[in-house]
Structure formats: C-alpha cells, structure tokens
C-alpha cells in the first residue's frame, strides 16, 4: 500500500503529518548577539548576504559581491551553469564554508561571531539535501533519517514514532530497515529529504535534489518542498532543471561568473538585475 501511488499518499497524508512537520520556534537568545540584527529586528531574514566574496585558498574569487536575502517563508531557486558556484553558495548558507569577505547573517545572527557550538546549533535548524544524498551506508534508512534527532539528544523512544510516520509518509515505510546501498536513486533521495526535514528545520537547502531521479519523482519531490514551504519552512533549491523552476512561481537567482542575478535569464519575463 505504502509503496504504490506515493504521490497521492504524500498529498493525502500531508495534513496528518502537520504535527510532525510544524516547526518549533527558534530560540534566538541561544545564539548570541548579532550586530546586523537591528535592520530587521522583528522578523529577521533567514539568510542575509552582504558583499560576500569567496575564494578557495589563494585562487580567484568564485563568488564576488554577493548580496542576497531569503525572507522567512520564502521559496527560492538558485540556478546557473555547472561550476558557477551554486554549491559553494549553499555551503555558505549552511555555514559549511566561511566567506573570504563580506558578512553573512543566518537567522539574524552574524555568522562571523558564532563559535563552533553556535554554528552547530544553527545547523540543527537547517535541513540540507545534497546531490549525492550523503546517507551513511552502514545505517538503515530509519537510523539515517533519525540522525538529526539523535544528534540533538533525543532518545529512541522519543523519535521512533515521528521517524516511522515520516518514512511512511515519504513512501519508505516498507524500506525502513533497508541499507542505502540497496536503495534506488529515488528512494535514497527521499530518505535524504526525510532526514533533512525530520528535525523540523526553519530553512531547507537542497542541492540538485532532482538530479538523480526521473522527472516524475522530481516533480513529486518539488511538491513536497512546496508543501513544506506552505507550512512555513524557508526553502532554497539549487538546480539546473529549468522545467522544474517553471513549475512554481518562486523567486529565482542565477549565478554567472561568480555574481548573482535575479531572474532566470536575460530573456525571461522576470527582472534581470545584478544583486
């Protein structure tokens, strides 16, 4: 039952899952003071980049003068040619990289002022889906998905029901005890997404989430992201897939030559603007 007609099951069960997916409010006090917070003290942007530049080692800047804001509850696509810096920009968003210059504010906190413990606390509020899934091969699907909760200190008794329900909801109820090497690309992708959303993140970042799946699964996953966004999660997806972008009326950012532009391309009906 669970592994047939997954699209409809996901749609039908989504409201039922609301209790699991409803975000808990962030505790801003736990993350220290932010000198940039005065700009929007009441509802700070989830992500705020100001004149950000990034270079690896002594190499050339691969991102230059990036100014970007992701308001709370927004849905954005990030596109651009291969090697343009999409993945690097996403890594800056979830603080896996530090910028070479400029300021990054995440959840109203200046990233430069966060110590390691605070960075990890920020990361627990961000769900990340990477192109290569990054599932742990020797852990079952259940264990992979429950990892963020385990890391957050929850006991097995506390999270078992939530993880089980979420896996059933994404159509992996029958594969809970399977190991990643035995999963198909689509199943791995859904497991990775389930892991990204299980801790009810405020921000969901996905890097080419449909890159390894067929178009039908890709559309299905997109609807899942849209539903999460409808419930308040800020979503940012990096993708090459123009068809996917055109399915939703969402903000689009394009990276070219290390600079970020608003709009799909010069010929689109959106405003072309170097941000």
């Amino acid at each position: 039952m669970e592994h047939s007609g997954q699209v409809s099951i996901i749609s039908v069960r989504f409201d039922k899952r609301r209790s699991i997916l409803t975000r808990s409010e962030p505790n801003a006090n736990s993350l220290g003071k932010n000198p940039l917070a005065s700009r929007s003290a009441e509802t700070p942007d989830i992500i705020d980049f100001r004149d950000v530049g990034l270079r690896y080692g002594r190499g050339p800047e691969i991102l230059s003068d990036v100014n970007l804001t992701l308001p709370q509850g927004s849905f954005s696509f990030l596109t651009g040619p291969s090697g343009a810096g999409k993945s690097s920009l996403l890594k800056l968003c979830y603080l896996a990289l530090a910028p070479s210059r400029g300021h990054i504010s995440v959840f109203g906190q200046d990233a430069a002022l966060l110590d390691n413990r605070e960075i990890q606390a920020v990361r627990r509020r961000i769900g990340v889906v990477l192109q290569d899934f990054t599932l742990i091969d020797h852990l079952s699907v259940f264990e992979n998905v429950s990892l963020p909760l385990r890391v957050a200190g929850q006991s097995r008794g506390q999270y078992t029901q939530d993880v089980t329900e979420l896996l059933q909801w994404v159509g992996l109820g029958h594969r809970m005890q399977a190991f990643p090497p035995t999963l198909s690309g689509g199943e791995k992708q859904r497991a990775a997404i389930a892991r990204a959303v299980i801790a009810k993140p405020n921000l969901l970042i996905a890097d080419e989430p449909t890159g390894n799946v067929d178009p039908e699964i890709g559309r299905r996953l997109l609807r899942l992201f849209a539903e999460m966004n409808r419930m308040g999660t800020t979503v940012m997806i990096a993708t090459h897939d123009i068809d996917l972008i055109q399915e939703l009326d969402a903000r689009v950012f394009r990276i070219e030559g290390g600079r970020i532009f608003k709009g799909l391309n010069a010929g689109s009906n959106r405003d072309e603007k170097h941000l």
Binding site: Y94, A96, N116, R117, Q120, A121, V122, R123, R124, R125, I126, V128, L130, T134, L135, I136, L147, P148, V151, A152, R195, A199
Partner: peptide
C-alpha cells in the same frame, strides 16, 4: 571522514 561530515551537516557538536 564522510560520516563525520554528515554528522557536522546535521548539527553534531565536536563533543558529540
């Protein structure tokens, strides 16, 4: 290393 990077990605502290 790959497991550590997944753990860091989901917010595991150094102590964890």
């Amino acid at each position: 290393r790959s497991i550590i990077s997944v753990l860091a990605q989901v917010g595991a502290t150094d102590s964890f």
